[in-house]
Computed example of a mutant assay.
Amino acid sequence: MITARNHRFFHQLFTKRTSVLTSLLLAFMLAATTIQASQATTPWPQVAISKDGTPISYEIYGTGEPTLVFVHGWSCDSRYWRAQIEEFSKKYRVVVLDLAGHGHSGLLRGRYTMRAFGEDVRAVTEPTGSSTVILVGHSMGGPVIAEAARLMPERVIGLIGVDTFDNIEYPMTRAELDQMIAPLIDDFQGESRKFAQSMILPSTDPQIREWILADISSAPPFVALSAMEEMMAQFISGEAARIFDGIKVPVFSVNGDLWPVDYEANRRHMQSFATITLKDTDHFLMLDRPYAFNQALEQAIYAILRKSAKK
């Protein structure tokens, strides 16, 4: 029998449970909205098709101008720019990509040439619609961004090399190149690890060092060997320097101090050339010294924008 006392008890219990259920429902709806908002703003990787039909994986962050396109080096991928994406996407549109044969991009090519890599960069840059593009290239990414600049003269306002462009006139011979590649052909995993290790200082964070060595030595050998052959052959033919004769934008380089820079050789071909050198820094400075590197990169970007504004 339900008495008045029992009625009050059940009413209070129902009201309390309803209140709890309502709170839980509101919390669930808020969480779902947050997840949906997060999913809506997450810059998921996209795919562009390069000139030869190879799918190229890329990501875009931020909305500002100029557009910064970051190009990785030999046997690397877009992850090597992880310490730059958040910082630079606050002010600029940032594009990172995996060149063909690297990361999540396609493996359809018989030859991995610098010109074809340049087409990969063009494939992910043109959809942005930007007419103020600065290309940033690490190591092998240096000759790649030079090729891309030649393909997009109406968009590119400057090039920034990262530990590259030491001497674009370097007089390499065919015998030197064969000697360089032979060990990689015999034992790619072991020799590529040694090759990368020679460019990393003992003072570099051990975790970063091991990550780089493991990553580079696990690259597809055919892609790596082809890219190395094509890149170094440009020094034999003179194309490494000659390509800059037709590029009419300023070139900067943010370098470690492992190797000297031949300014005279570079300036014989480049419209203008300047470097920012970080002391006690190795080839992978954007990973090992991200704060100092980001400051230097910002200086180079600012210098390019000033030059562009004077035109």
Rank of each mutant, 00 (worst) to 15 (best):
S237T: 15
S272Y: 04
R289H: 08
H269R: 06
Q299W: 01
E298P: 00
A296Y: 03
D262G: 06
Y263M: 11
D257N: 14
Q234V: 07
S272W: 07
D257R: 09
D262V: 06
V251P: 00
Q234R: 15
G238H: 13
N255A: 09
I236P: 01
F244M: 14
P290Q: 08
A300V: 13
K248L: 10
D245G: 15
A265S: 13
T275W: 02
D257T: 12
H283T: 03
E298L: 09
P250H: 12
Y291E: 09
A296C: 06
L258F: 10
D280V: 09
Q234E: 15
F273V: 07
N266H: 05
F252T: 09
T275E: 06
V261D: 00
N255M: 09
F235C: 12
S237A: 12
L287F: 00
M270W: 05
L258Q: 10
E264I: 07
K248N: 15
Y263G: 10
V249H: 02
D288W: 00
N266A: 10
S253P: 02
Q271Y: 12
Q234T: 14
K248V: 13
V254K: 08
N266D: 07
I247H: 13
D282V: 05
L285H: 03
K248W: 11
P260T: 14
Y263T: 15
R267F: 03
R242V: 12
V251W: 11
I276A: 02
